[in-house]
C-alpha cells in the first residue's frame, strides 16, 4: 500500500511540477480599450540618404499602447511608394527601417520623398510629414540583362511587322520603373499575332552565355511591365534559348524555353519566374524541347521578347524595364 501511495505521489509531482506558460492569454485589453496617445513624435534618423552606399533610414515614434501603424513613404517625382506596417507601441530600428525598397513601382529614384505615419484605428491621429532626400538609388543584387539606361545596344536585334503605328523604342521618362528609361513596344498588325520582337543575346554584353547558376531552381528571371489603361489585348512571350552544345551558336535542335503572360493590371508590375518553371511552348501549348531537355540556365545564350495580340483586336502596347536575373528569390525592388 505504501509503495502505491508513494509512487502515485511521485507520479503526481511529475505533472504538477511541469512548467506552464503564465503569460496573459489573448491580446492585451490595454491595447484594445486603452486610450491612444503619442508619447514620442514621429521622427526619422536622417533627412538625406544614399541607398547606393547601403545607407538606411530609421523611423521612430512611441505610443501609449500597442497599435497597428503604417509608415507611408512616397517619391515626389516617381510616385514610388513604400509602406512599412507593424503592431507595437514603439517604432524603432527593430521594426521600421527603410533601405530604399518599394512596395508600389516605380522604384525610388534620386528624388525628394515624404514620409508620414498613420494609425488606422485612430481616425483623429495625424503625424507630421517628414522630408527625406534620396541621394542615391538602391542597388538590387542580380545580373542585369538590361535596364535600358545606356541606350539601344547594337548587339540587340529587333523585328517589326509592317503594321500601323509601330513603335519599338527606348523612352526617357521619370515614370520609368527603374532609372529614367524604359522600352516601349506597340503597334497594330491585322494579319498576324506577332507585332514585333526584340532579342537580347548574351553576346551584346560580350558574353558567350549569361553568367547564371547551374541550378534552375535557384535562378529567377524578373522584368517590370507596364500596361496602359486602355489596352486590353496584350500578351507577351519571353523565350530563353540555350546553347546546349556550348558551340557559340544557337541551332534548331537546342532547347528553347518560354513563358507568356496576359491579363496584366494597368500600370507597372513585376513579373518574376523561376527558371525551373519554364517550359517549351509550341503555339502556346507545352511541348517537348528540341534539345537535351535539361533546364540549364548557365547555357542561356539569348532572350527574346515578343509582343503579341489577336490580329482582330487592334492596337496593342506594353512598356518593359529592368530585365534582371536574381538568385534564390525573386527580385526585391
Amino acid at each position: 500500500m505504501k509503495y502505491l501511495i508513494t509512487s502515485l505521489f511521485l507520479f503526481s509531482l511529475f505533472f504538477i511540477s511541469c512548467d506552464r506558460d503564465k503569460s496573459v492569454q489573448g491580446p492585451l485589453l490595454d491595447d484594445i480599450y486603452g486610450e491612444f496617445s503619442l508619447l514620442e513624435p514621429f521622427t526619422t534618423s536622417t533627412n538625406a540618404v544614399d541607398f547606393s552606399t547601403g545607407e538606411q533610414v530609421v523611423f521612430e515614434a512611441t505610443f501609449g499602447k500597442q497599435v497597428n501603424w503604417e509608415i507611408h513613404i512616397e517619391g515626389q517625382t516617381s510616385g514610388a511608394k513604400r509602406i512599412i506596417e507593424g503592431f507595437s507601441s514603439t517604432i524603432n530600428a527593430t521594426n521600421a527601417v527603410w533601405n530604399g525598397r518599394t512596395n508600389v513601382l516605380p522604384m525610388f529614384k534620386t528624388e525628394p520623398c515624404r514620409a508620414y505615419l498613420l494609425v488606422p484605428n485612430e481616425d483623429n491621429f495625424s503625424s507630421d510629414t517628414l522630408s527625406i532626400s534620396v541621394l542615391g538609388e538602391r542597388v538590387t543584387p542580380g545580373f542585369v540583362v538590361t535596364d535600358f539606361e545606356s541606350g539601344f545596344n547594337s548587339g540587340w536585334n529587333t523585328f517589326l511587322q509592317s503594321g500601323a503605328n509601330m513603335n519599338f523604342r527606348i523612352v526617357e521618362s521619370p515614370l520609368a520603373a527603374q532609372g529614367n528609361f524604359y522600352y516601349e513596344m506597340g503597334g497594330e498588325v491585322p494579319f498576324d499575332f506577332l507585332i514585333g520582337l526584340i532579342e537580347f543575346p548574351a553576346s551584346a554584353q560580350q558574353l558567350q552565355r549569361y553568367p547564371l547558376s547551374t541550378n534552375p531552381n535557384n535562378v529567377y528571371f524578373n522584368v517590370f511591365l507596364y500596361k496602359p489603361e486602355n489596352i486590353r489585348n496584350e500578351f507577351i512571350l519571353f523565350r530563353f534559348l540555350e546553347d546546349d552544345n556550348e558551340d557559340g551558336t544557337l541551332q534548331n535542335n537546342e532547347d528553347v524555353y518560354s513563358f507568356e503572360t496576359r491579363s496584366l493590371q494597368p500600370g507597372w508590375q513585376q513579373i518574376s519566374i523561376r527558371y525551373s518553371d519554364l517550359v517549351n511552348l509550341v503555339n502556346g501549348q507545352p511541348a517537348p524541347p528540341a534539345g537535351n531537355g535539361v533546364l540549364e540556365p548557365h547555357k542561356l545564350a539569348r532572350i527574346d521578347v515578343l509582343l503579341l495580340a489577336d490580329p482582330s483586336t487592334g492596337y496593342s502596347q506594353l512598356y518593359m524595364d529592368n530585365l534582371i536575373f536574381t538568385e534564390n528569390q525573386p527580385l526585391q525592388p
Partner: peptide
Amino acid sequence: HVVGEGTE
C-alpha cells in the same frame, strides 16, 4: 482564472 485573459 489560472492566467489572465487580456490582462493580469
